[in-house]
């Protein structure tokens, strides 16, 4: 029987990352969609960097930055009690940065595609920006939200390089499924690697299929 802990850890990581990403990405994508600021292109570029940068680059710099032998890492360790290298918390932070474009892009284009007059109508009716965001804008962005949530979740399940760099391979703590597969192959344990791989393949396939079915209106058509 295989060790289930890497799979459980993977889904725990993906779940927490997705929740935190939502909290970060909603204000960020709102700002990106409506700002006229000159720094917008720079921020957009930074958000998109994980799409093109090798994950190892990101992992490497995070490893350097968060190392307790470094001023910043030391400060985190002493003042906040956060040790971000070779820990689950570190994985979460790395995953948030690594999956950021997958949440921000759908939300940003969702905000931009909403008619500006929805927002204006709400303001004229005396509603604050926050009320407008939660009662008017977000409820009309359901497909963008769903796309963002599912893509970030699936992408976090699939990450490897950044996790290996900053998390290493500590069983039950940072050894996620993708690393477990690599580990099993290294020790020529192909059966176990195959089982992990098949499970990941099946789950990500189903998740993505659901998105396309929902966004393509397939379920709506079945119901009506």
């Amino acid at each position: 029987m295989i060790d289930w802990s890497p799979l459980i850890l993977t889904f725990k990581l993906a779940f927490i990352t997705t929740i935190l990403l939502l909290v970060v990405a909603i204000p960020l994508s709102y700002w990106l969609a409506y700002t006229k600021s000159k720094v917008k292109p720079v921020i957009e570029t930074l958000v998109s960097m994980p799409l093109v940068l090798p994950p190892t680059v990101l992992g490497f710099y995070m490893l350097i930055a968060f190392s307790p032998s470094n001023a910043f890492g030391n400060w985190l360790d002493e003042w906040l009690g956060l040790r971000l290298v070779f820990s689950f918390e570190g994985l979460v932070l790395a995953s948030i940065i690594y999956s950021l474009p997958f949440m921000v892009h759908p939300l940003q284009s969702g905000f931009s595609n909403l008619s500006i007059s929805l927002k204006e109508a709400s303001y004229v009716l005396g509603k604050s920006k926050l009320t407008t965001l939660f009662k008017v804008l977000l409820p009309n962005l359901k497909t963008s939200l769903l796309t963002g949530i599912v893509l970030s979740f699936a992408h976090t399940i699939g990450e490897f390089g950044v996790v290996l760099m900053i998390g290493g391979n500590i069983s039950g703590k940072t050894k996620v499924a993708s690393i477990a597969i690599y580990d099993e192959v290294e020790s020529l344990n192909y059966d176990a690697a195959n089982t992990y791989s098949l499970i990941l393949f099946a789950i990500t396939f189903v998740i993505l299929l659901m998105v396309y079915l929902v966004n393509g209106g397939y379920f709506k058509r079945i119901i009506s």
Binding site: S117, L118, A121, V124, G126, K127, V136
Partner: peptide, 20 residues
């Protein structure tokens, strides 16, 4: 004054009803 504080009713050309 921000729009919220101006006592107006505005009917938009494209209606701007909230679809949700």
């Amino acid at each position: 004054l921000i729009p919220q504080k101006r006592n107006i009713g505005l009917v938009f050309q494209e209606y701007a009803l909230f679809p949700n």
